[in-house]
Amino acid sequence: MSNAVEVRSLSKSFASVKALDDISFDVGEGELFGLVGPDGAGKTTLFRILTTLLVPDRGTATVLGLDVVKDLWEIRSRVGYMPGGFALYPDLSVAENLEFFAAVFGTTVEKGYELIAPIYRQIEPFRDRRAEALSGGMKQKLALSCALVHRPDILLLDEPTTGVDAVSRREFWDQLGHLKASGLTIVVSTPYMDEAVRCDRVALIHGGKILEIDPPRSIGTRYGLPLIAVRGGDRFGLLHALREFPHAHTVYLFGDELHYTDSRADAPPETVANELREYLAGRGHKGVEAHPIAAGIEDSFMELMGSAPAPTATAA
């Protein structure tokens, strides 16, 4: 068996909403695989099917070579799952939560300690504190420890870093890197584009469909239009001025820059940058810098999202 996860033509609807619409992909053994997409994209539905908590309407999925419908009990004992949001027992202590999860899986904290130690040691000084009284970063470390305590063969993490600060997010991804190095397969979803670069491969997911699957460094390479970074004083004014430029395709805020995409696929990017500088100077924006750049994951994602049908209001 070479694939830890195999998904074929998987669909799932809730009433009239297609949460997953005919998706297919594989995750290799030992791979760190990212599902990147916004709230409502279908990520959680996918995790719930892979963890055997939901049955698909159509299509098949296997996890560790086991069928998610027929082999649910074996899958459940071999998967580590960290659901979105806070899914621990708030009125149990740190240690009690961990002991509880170990007991449910018929094991003990001692047997799983070696695997969880790098993470759990950071919260062990607070072992008697109730889980609800932990800070965001600590809750997340406890949740990861609970998902790992039975030494699973695959780890499924649903938005583990939403609402977590930038430092804790980095530390969390460092831990995932260590776990991957130990051979564990990891499937992780995130709305943060900057986290996608730490995955082996990334699936961009939106409106129940997978838009693209690629290694993170390849994701921008298919961006077919000239992309220009623009930097200047009055960002809001620049944004509107650029949108009124006749060849503007999209204009987005981007950190301390604006990213302008031109609608002319064959226009040389340098020429476009020159045109923009001239145009903006003519509109009274002085000292504006504009230079061509390569598209990143976030550029690609928004471009793909923009060309996909918008999610309906009921796509919760």
Binding site: P38, P191, E298, M305
Partner: peptide, 30 residues
């Protein structure tokens, strides 16, 4: 928090528009 990259930007354009009307905006973000 948890909002897609396009909607985050639309949200910030609403913030800028409010600030341009003179509203002071005090905001936290990760």
């Amino acid at each position: 928090s948890g909002v897609d990259p396009m909607t985050r930007r639309q949200f910030w354009e609403l913030i800028y528009a409010a600030a341009a009307r003179g509203t002071t905006v005090f905001v936290t973000t990760h």
